[in-house]
Design a binder for these strands. Structure first.
Ligand code: NAD
Ligand code: NAD
Lengths: 216, 216
DNA sequence: AAGCCTTTGTGAACGCACGCACAAAGTCGG
DNA sequence: CCGACTTTGTGCGTGCGTTCACAAAGGCTT
């Protein structure tokens, strides 16, 4: 379930605070969800709570980590070291959650060979070798939209089955390959939508369109 | 609806390709959704299709843009000009979708005054003034997790009702304020979860926990 | 002009996730 | 040792979003 990472984050916060045990009500508040939903989610991993007391923080952290596959480290490759790729490569928050930035790849001659966050940028031509040699299982795509599908195809052909895509395109992949996309423009557009709603919503449908067309 | 931006993106692609008219089947494929869902979504904006033909691309682009509030420009402030904030500030894809980066704010003396993407970074102390003077309606938070809630509170107090948050914390805001969050660690964790599933899933529950505890 | 063909718009069934509410279970104080 | 209190785990009703399937509608061909 997609909420487990949120619970995990909340639990880490509690653990640092020295809390040993937590009720579903408290944890739900920290994670921003309904307490019944939280309990139901946790019950799917087995029954780790004590009635009348709550959940033991440390044990729950371990159970969720195990469920998410965070008891092992994952090797990640970043492809495309432009604005975004660099920001990701330099971010320390991944390593602390068990994600090791294992390889950086780009096509631009001026970028290949550069040292970023302690790693040398490799040429995209070496994709297959780099993935195999470093045991990469997750690829992060931070390349332009026009290159994304082609790069994706190569990554998949190299055996990677998990992709995090930042390019604003719908990637098509074979069954068994998991793609998650982060599209910041879409996030802003959704905010704009709500912002407009508050301001009264769209009005004068036909008029506005005609005016807009005439204005060209 | 959160899918409209995806449709819009697909339509822009078709328009650039010179396509004048598109069927729900084609557009659904381009957007990666079911065609019945697409038609139902579009029917909520009114009936803009022609039976036997499909939808006129240009008209549909206008209708969706209007629904999303993209017929007007929105002014955005980026708060926190570290790794991520810089990447966002330097990204050209926002301006082309009607989002104007209107102000950059940071607390670090070394960063305030710096020129990034044609804008001078202002001090966070001027938050209220900057927001009012530039007509900011959307704030992007790219500050450390520890500072996020405090900055959020100030932003909300300044009248902003739409926030895009990159910090890995659950922000609490008053009713009427829209928060969208982007947490890249969570995306990776979800990928890891599926990756692990493919590899056979978690096994040996008690044993693993005991081993892990003993190993400390 | 008429019939055929394509495609929309939507009624209805289905499934799923959410949340209420409560019984079972366990703790803690006396 | 017992009773009261707390909190979990879950059965169940509800509401929403998705999908199928089809009738209505419009264009196109002959
Ligand atoms: N920067 C942002 O804040 C932001 C925001 C939203 C979306 N995005 C999206 O993220 C992606 C990257 O954005 P960016 O700003 O870093 O772009 P960028 O142009 O700065 O960087 C792209 C990098 O990809 C490399 N590249 C191009 N083709 C390649 C190929 N075939 N193989 C390997 N590498 C290749 C380029 O050399 C460049 O270094 C884009 O798709 C963009 O639309 C970025
Ligand atoms: N960089 C990434 O790829 C990445 C990935 C996932 C999540 N994040 C999250 O995004 C946020 C920013 O990440 P980053 O890598 O850019 O961090 P960073 O440390 O590079 O930048 C943070 C910036 O915020 C500024 N800042 C600190 N306190 C402030 C305050 N009170 N008011 C205004 N500005 C303040 C700092 O001066 C700094 O410039 C963090 O919460 C991080 O967890 C980043």
């Amino acid at each position: 379930m997609a909420r487990l990472p949120v619970y995990l984050r909340a639990l880490h916060g509690l653990a640092e605070h020295g809390t040993a045990t937590v009720s579903s009500e408290e944890l739900a508040a920290a994670a921003g969800v309904n307490s019944a939903k939280l309990r139901k989610d946790l019950s799917h991993l087995g029954s780790y709570g004590t009635r009348g007391v709550g959940y033991e923080v440390e044990y729950l952290v371990y159970q969720i980590s195990r469920e998410l596959g965070l008891t092992q480290d994952w090797s990640v490759a970043i492809i495309g070291l432009g604005n975004l790729g660099r920001a990701l490569a330099g971010y320390g928050g991944f390593a602390s959650r068990g994600f090791r930035m294992a390889a950086l790849l780009d096509a631009e001659p001026g970028i290949v060979g550069e040292l970023i966050a302690g790693l040398t940028v490799e040429h995209i031509d070496k994709l297959e070798t780099v993935i195999k040699d470093n045991g990469i299982s997750i690829a992060v795509l931070a390349v332009p939209a026009t290159a994304a599908q082609a790069v994706c195809d190569r990554v998949v052909a190299s055996g990677v089955t998990s992709i995090l895509n930042f390019a604003p395109v719908v990637l098509s992949v074979p069954d068994g390959v998991e793609v998650r996309k982060v599209d910041l423009s879409i996030e802003l557009q959704i905010l704009a939508f709500h912002e407009q709603r508050k301001a009264g919503g769209p009005s004068g449908v036909e008029q506005e369109y005609l005016e807009a067309v005439e204005g060209q």
